[in-house]
């Protein structure tokens, strides 16, 4: 029984990790005042380029790097359109998701069904062999630690660093930040790019570690769930972890319940994460004023510097 619990927790963390990556990136993006609805598309682009690189070179870590780079490049299309050409952020984010879905399917066409050497779980002598806590604390794959490390770094960055303060300022009032003399558009480019890289890494995690293989549309809505997580987290990094673990747990619960054969049709169990997202959104959004207080005041608004 403890083994089953440990195994469940381990799987839960792998289910949560892509969400941690993507939601942490989107959180930075939104804190700067930019709403990028293209997370799903960027995850798919990251997943496919990461997988293709790993398949061609046999080097999974290089694949992961490529996943991040691909996500970043995709996000720059979005940044150019919304920040330089002032297009509507909602529509452009949707376009990015549609584009990413198509591009990833095209690139991944030849890789469907291929396998790669996945990035394995780490194993530290002694530590990982400790009873119970050994695997729980020291037995995950390295990317779990990377995602948690990045999340912690982002939390520190936002609350403690000067640049984090500037980023929050840009999201709170672009006009004021511009008046004081901060390069609003440049800062937002950087935030969007970071969001793209993180979404790409999240996608890479899916294709390089989680499954590990490429299938069309394999993000299966995780990009959208990551967006919901940012709202759920009230734009605070520490709460992203909580939300991701919640969704990881639901995923595992659903898989275990299907395996246990409770007589509930599999399709209904598979709906759980999506329905849970809706429920969570409803619970968190009820207090409209609170949402408005927490959300970056400039979220989604175009900004054009007058000179």
């Amino acid at each position: 029984m403890p083994d089953l619990i440990i195994a469940s927790v381990m799987t839960m963390m792998t289910a949560a990790t892509p969400l941690v990556f993507a939601a942490t990136g989107e959180l930075i993006c939104e804190r700067s005042g930019v709403l990028n609805l293209g997370v799903e598309g960027m995850m798919l682009i990251g997943a496919v380029f990461g997988f293709a690189t790993a398949a061609v070179t046999g080097n999974a870590p290089l694949g992961l790097l490529m996943a991040g780079v691909a996500g970043l490049l995709a996000s720059l299309i979005f940044a150019t359109l919304t920040l330089s050409l002032l297009s509507n952020q909602v529509a452009t984010g949707l376009a990015l998701t549609i584009f990413g879905t198509g591009l990833s399917a095209l690139v991944g066409f030849d890789y469907v069904g291929e396998t790669i050497d996945q990035i394995a779980a780490i194993h530290l002598p002694v530590l990982s062999d400790l009873p119970v806590v050994g695997r729980l604390l020291f037995g995950h794959d390295p990317l779990v630690y990377l995602s948690l490390g990045l999340l912690a770094a982002v939390a520190w960055f936002l609350s403690r660093s000067r640049w984090g303060m500037i980023l929050r300022a840009v999201g709170d009032s672009d006009v004021s930040a511009h008046a004081i003399g901060y390069p609003v558009v440049l800062i937002r480019y950087a935030a969007v790019a970071f969001g793209g890289m993180m979404a790409g890494l999240g996608g890479g995690y899916l294709s390089l570690v989680y499954t590990p293989l490429w299938a069309e549309n394999m993000a299966a809505g995780r990009g959208w769930i990551a967006l919901a997580l940012v709202v759920f987290a009230s734009w605070r990094p520490e709460r992203v972890l909580f939300g991701a673990i919640l969704f990881g747990s639901i995923t595992i619960l659903q898989l275990n319940a299907q395996a246990a054969g409770l007589g509930i049709p599999a399709a209904f169990m598979s709906m759980l994460p999506y329905i849970a997202t809706i429920v969570v959104l409803v619970l968190i959004s009820r207090d409209a004023i609170k949402i408005r207080l927490n959300a970056p005041a400039c979220l989604g608004r175009p900004f054009r510097a007058e000179r």
Partner: peptide, 26 residues
């Protein structure tokens, strides 16, 4: 050609459209 090309085109059309929209306002 893979069918996915259609989806890619659709995304690209929307990108271009959004870029050109700039000229309707500025």
């Amino acid at each position: 050609l893979p069918k996915a090309v259609t989806g890619l085109f659709q995304g690209i059309i929307l990108f271009y459209l959004l870029a050109f929209d700039l000229f309707t306002r500025y």
